[in-house]
Design a protein around this nucleic acid. Sequence first.
DNA 1: AACCTTCTCCCCATAAATGGGGAGGGGAAA
DNA 2: TTTCCCCTCCCCATTTATGGGGAGAAGGTT
Lengths: 219, 219
Amino acid sequence: MKEKIYVHVADDHKILIEGIVAVINTDKDIEVEGYSLTGKEVIDWAQSNTADILILDINMPHYDGIEVLKFFKLKDIKIKTIILSSYDDVKLVEEMLTLGASGFLSKDSAGEHIINAIKAVHEGEQYFSDAIKSNLLKLYTGQKVKAGQRPESTIAHSLTDREIEVLKLIAQEYSSPEIADILNISQSTVDTYRKSLLKKTNVKNAVGLAMYAVKNKII
Amino acid sequence: MKEKIYVHVADDHKILIEGIVAVINTDKDIEVEGYSLTGKEVIDWAQSNTADILILDINMPHYDGIEVLKFFKLKDIKIKTIILSSYDDVKLVEEMLTLGASGFLSKDSAGEHIINAIKAVHEGEQYFSDAIKSNLLKLYTGQKVKAGQRPESTIAHSLTDREIEVLKLIAQEYSSPEIADILNISQSTVDTYRKSLLKKTNVKNAVGLAMYAVKNKII
DNA sequence: AACCTTCTCCCCATAAATGGGGAGGGGAAA
DNA sequence: TTTCCCCTCCCCATTTATGGGGAGAAGGTT
């Protein structure tokens, strides 16, 4: 008699969760035990979890996927985790690997791949969706990686709440006067935040800030 | 006897599509007629469509949702369209309204809302998910909007080779003088490309261009 | 109490970006 | 040949962004 595989799903988009649940329900060996909409919920859940597999979106409000994995490592919580990502970012995959993730699914991939990924990871294997696999291959064959920069998606922590608010708006194409208007502060203040953001993130202009926000999943 | 409502779904994330299909299939009055993974596919499909409702993601490669709507307007194609967006961006909603969209769903919203949205729009009503509704309210009561650029424009401009070169460099944080230097052209020319890029991509500044480049996998 | 951080605002200045217009040359297509 | 698109460059102007400095108020920490 085969045991069922219990899965927990974490993503900030409820529609996506329902989709994954629907797909998973087509397989009789797997069952969804529950879901979380934020990283915080995942961490709360993890304290007393009963599931076998966690499907984790990297891009979530209140602690993103990376931070969740770090928390697991810190607390020595062992859950087999499959990462769900919008972008096939190899750097991220690398980082996730060192943090103990077991599988990587691109959101572009078809639903059936979720089933395969869950079963593979449950058997102790690793699983990568095709797009990510080919990117990894490229990385480990041709391209060399700059050794200096292990991109810490945690510098985000040194940003203050207000700075992050401003950063989000910058990345959404708002100008300083517009941001000042939205946050009800003076333009001078917004400019101060711009300067401080540029210093802290070490990029050279607003475009760099926007890219930083994307990479660090602030938006 | 009630007629079934036929729906077409367009999103670049297949998992999300499968999720929506699964949700829709729980309702016996609605059926998914097919799906598209890119804006181009939507446009191709629209030429000979038979569906009642189109569910359209704004963020897709090869012509995004906005360009699809523009194309519809240009060709006088009438399909009731429900926009699916990750962000509850009021600016976008505004623009979509003028382009003829009928409903707006945040990806955060629960699946049941899709059903409601489809039925409402099919009855000729408009539908907004809660987050967007409250943002709209804020817009029309308090906040002022800059009325500068409401871009009416031609359809589906493809970017020229040179424009794409410049776009890539912009998205890599280069300034106009630097780009001029790299491409061995004058700064005036680079500025001309900036203007043309802003017009064609319908974003409002360099940050928007960078985001556009990311979304369309130009970088 | 002294200290630190955060949030807020201001001064100064220069560089860069945006928005409008026009214009010539080259090449491809009609 | 004429037409059209692309690449190139310039004029004008205004708005934004960047870079340097300082500084007060509020809150928490030591």
